[in-house]
Amino acid sequence: MSAIDFSDPATIAFLTEALTAAGASGLEISWPGGRLRIVIATGNEAGVDVSVTPRPAPTAQPLVVVKAPMAGHFYPGSPSRQAATDRLPSVLAADILGFLRVGPLLLPLCAGRAGILTKQLAEPDALVGFGDPLFEIEPQS
C-alpha cells in the first residue's frame, strides 16, 4: 500500500503544481480510505476535493484465495497428512495444501500465507484452469 498521505496539503500543493506544469487538466486518485480530485481550471486556478472515509475499526484481515498457477487436475491434501478439509487446520505459508497433476508431474500448491484454512473451493480430481480458486485462508498475523 502507498505510504503517501493524499490528504496532506503539502502533497496536494505539489501535485497541483506538477499538473499545471505538465498542462494536464486534472487528476483523480482513489484509495481504500478516500478520494482526491484535483481539477486545473482555466487560468490555472485549481479546484481540490478531498474526501476521506473514516477508517473502519480494525477487523479480521480479508480472506486470501489460493489460485491454480496453471491448468491441471486438482488433488487436495498432502502425503504427510489428512486431506486439507478434514479439519480446519492452522497452516504456515510454506505448507503444501495439495497438488496439481499435470501429466506425470505433481505440482505442489503452497498456502503462501499463514492462517486458518477455511475452505477448499475445488472438487478433488477436478480439471482446473489458470487462476481458478482452490483454497480460502483466513490470515493470521
Partner: peptide, 14 residues
Amino acid sequence: DSALCIGPSSAAKS
C-alpha cells in the same frame, strides 16, 4: 463441452 483458463490477460501468456 469443456472450458479452461490458460493464462493471464496478456495474449503472450495465454
